[in-house]
Design a protein around this nucleic acid. Structure first.
Length: 367
DNA sequence: AACAAGGGTTTAG
DNA sequence: TCATCTAAACCCTTGTT
């Protein structure tokens, strides 16, 4: 009775597919969507690419130059700059469509969503299957986009089901198929287990999700932390009680790549737009932030951060800029020239709604 | 013991 | 040789209540 049915929808190679829709002559050619950093003509990374390019070795996150080298014998290859506004607009239309299939809805990212269809289907997987097919058909009809759908008893398994067959897949994991589906998979297929964790697990003799499910809990807690260790083991057993529901945004950041590495704070004009953007976004969220921080990515690509907590939450561009500038100045002073910054950014968090809420001690505490 | 603050790492798309 | 951008979860340490 408390068994759920969750549908996960994942739009296939989303940015690149959006570009194919906008320019149909691109289909069949390798399409690489790029984030150009502006440092040099070509510098930047691959955001995503279509399957034609993937088959030729192009991967997300790879330097653009590497991808170009890979495709240089292919005269059809197309390299395009990301156009987030366009993808956002396409995404919003699709998300509106998806909402019509279930009020219990969660948009996870620009190209992913969960639907809880437990009550609509009354627990019947055939009905859920039908909803899955209808979702795919409707997105093709309205936006000419394919997606991969996963159906299972919770978000974790639904997500893993979408990953099982893509692009344009539809995978169902029935409750009695969970162990058979999970156990043989390499542990790196479990969401939350990335390359680092996978290596550490390998060192413990954990190769498959099944191995992890059976592994000693004490040892996992010791190795991966009191929370994370046991959580991963629970996930490996296919257990996930996270509800399908929209979540509040908890932080907001903007970061840029500097034209050239900095060893002191001489780039205020470059970060003002970040403060402007953050202030605007806070306004549209009807939020103020109590924590303002800076992010520095050094020339050896390590991430550093500094932050301070305000007594009174703010959404003011000038205050965000002034305080982050202070943090940058202090940062370079205390690092005594040991630091060269390649990328810099501003991050705000600990949102408070426009309600007045002060963390100052009461005046009466002084008397 | 429980919580806040500050900083780092890892993951994901 | 070259390495984007955004958001979240979690870890650890230190300090306060």
């Amino acid at each position: 009775m408390n068994d759920r049915i969750v549908i996960a929808v994942d739009l296939d190679y989303f940015f690149a597919q959006c570009e194919e829709v906008r320019r149909p002559e691109l289909s069949g050619k390798p399409v690489v969507v790029c984030v150009f950093s502006g440092r040099t003509e070509e510098s930047g990374a691959v955001s995503t690419s279509n399957y034609v390019a993937r088959k030729l070795g192009v991967k997300s996150g790879m330097p653009i130059v590497t991808a170009k080298r890979m495709l240089k014998t292919n005269p059809d290859a197309v390299f395009l700059p990301v156009d987030h506004e366009y993808y956002r607009a396409v995404s919003e239309k699709i998300m509106q469509t998806l909402r019509t299939f279930s009020e219990v809805f969660e948009q996870v990212s620009v190209d992913e969503a969960f639907l809880d269809v437990s009550s609509i289907t009354k627990g019947n997987y055939e009905i859920a299957h039908d909803i899955g097919r209808k979702i795919k058909a409707q997105i093709v009809e309205t936006e000419k986009l394919t997606c991969s759908v996963g159906i299972a008893k919770n978000k974790l398994l639904a997500k893993m089901a979408t990953d099982f067959r893509k692009p344009d897949g539809l995978t169902i994991i029935q409750p009695d198929e969970v162990q058979g589906f999970m156990n043989p998979l390499p542990v790196g297929k479990l969401p939350g287990v990335g390359p680092k964790t996978e290596q550490r697990m390998k060192a413990l003799g954990i190769e498959t999700i099944g191995d992890l499910a059976l592994f000693d809990q004490e040892l996992l807690a010791r190795e991966f932390g009191r929370n994370l260790g046991p959580n991963l083991a629970t996930l490996a057993q296919g257990v996930d009680n996270e509800p399908v529901q929209e979540r509040e945004q908890e932080q907001l950041s903007r970061i840029i790549t500097l034209k050239r590495d900095a060893t002191k704070f001489d780039f205020q004009s470059e970060i003002r737009p970040l403060a402007t953007d953050i202030s605007l976004k806070l306004g549209s969220l009807k939020s103020k932030c109590r924590v303002i921080g800076i992010i520095v990515i050094t020339s050896d690509l390590k991430t550093k951060s500094r932050a301070l907590t305000l007594d009174t939450p703010t959404d003011s561009e000038n205050q965000i800029l002034a305080l982050s500038s202070d943090l940058f100045r202090t940062y370079f002073e205390t690092e005594q020239g040991n630091i060269t910054a390649r990328r810099v950014g501003i991050r705000v968090s600990n949102f408070a709604s426009s309600e007045v809420e002060s963390k100052n001690p009461n005046l009466s505490d002084f008397f």
